[in-house]
């Protein structure tokens, strides 16, 4: 049956600002299904973003929503979570926002293993400013600021998150719509920092510079490059060239930051008694 998205959407906000074929809308729907599945309460949930196309998501959804400055979402979210640990806190945003200007906040939120869920929509580009390269733009690709091909190597968002200490890291694509809500659901249920990278398409800014003729072509590419982790274990390095792994890439149990701070409070209060 049709999922009732309206129950979580603010009235009168559609159609949204995203371009035709932009996958952010697909991710937003997956996010709402996951929130519904986990039974998150609207008043008790905060959704935080930075700045950029993906960061416009919070404006559409009926929760406590915070659209902050470029790159700062994880740090604002950390303040909310630490001040009110009983709230469910999510961060949404793009690759430039989260991995370039917000990279420091991102890795430190991962390191603390603070209990929040970060949905990073990676469309390889700065879309809102018209298509400049991000740390996730593939080497050699063209953007308005790499007109002769991108000389930069990329950040692998998932590896970065794992290396920094996030205890749940998963990846999927905007094409794999059902996997989006499954992975976000698993992330929400995980205690600690959960990062879900969704490879996304930007037909307007990325597609036009890189000879993707249509939205469909970009979607097909997302379909083609994705390899589930289980399938990948049976594949040769040659077969895996140019592919990306999808599914849960990393999960472990480690002390969660808000709980750690509760112990600090307990120790401080015990010490104060003497």
């Amino acid at each position: 049956m049709a999922f009732d998205y309206e129950q979580y959407l603010r009235p009168g906000k559609l159609p949204h600002i995203w371009c035709p074929g932009c996958g952010h809308g697909i991710v937003m729907k997956g996010l709402l299904r996951a929130i519904d599945r986990c039974g998150l309460q609207k008043n008790n949930t905060a959704i935080v973003s930075g700045t950029g196309c993906a960061s416009r998501l919070p404006g559409y959804v009926d929760f406590n929503t915070l659209h902050t400055a470029h790159g700062r979402a994880a740090a604002f979210a950390t303040g909310i979570k630490m001040a009110k640990p009983e709230m469910d806190v999510l961060v949404v945003g793009g690759d430039g926002d989260g991995i370039a200007i917000g990279g420091n906040h991102f890795i430190h939120a991962c390191r603390r293993n603070i209990d929040m869920t970060y949905v990073l929509m990676n469309n390889y580009i700065y879309g809102m400013t018209g298509g400049q390269f991000s740390p996730c733009t593939p080497t050699g690709d063209r953007t308005s600021t790499t007109p002769y091909g991108n000389p930069d190597p990329i950040f692998d968002v998932a590896k970065l998150a794992i290396g920094a200490g996030a205890t749940f890291v998963a990846r999927t694509t905007a094409f794999h719509a059902t996997q989006i809500d499954k992975l976000i659901t698993a992330g929400l249920r995980h205690k600690g920092m959960a990062v879900i990278e969704v490879l996304d398409d930007c037909p307007t800014a990325f597609g036009r510079h890189n000879k993707f003729r249509s939205v469909v072509e970009m979607m097909k590419r997302l379909k083609d490059i994705a390899v589930p982790t289980q399938a990948a274990s049976q594949m040769s390095p040659d077969q895996l060239r140019g592919k990306i792994l999808t599914g849960i890439l990393h999960q472990e149990e480690k002390p969660e930051y808000c709980e750690q701070y509760q112990q600090v409070i307990a120790r401080a209060q015990a010490a104060a008694k003497f």
């Binding site: 049956m1 049709a2 159609p15 949204h16 995203w18 035709p20 809308g25 729907k29 979607m219």
Partner: peptide
């Protein structure tokens, strides 16, 4: 349901 899931614009509904 794939059309509804993949519609980025909340435009497709299947009942």
């Amino acid at each position: 349901m794939l059309c509804e899931l993949r519609c980025p614009d909340f435009a497709v509904k299947v009942y």
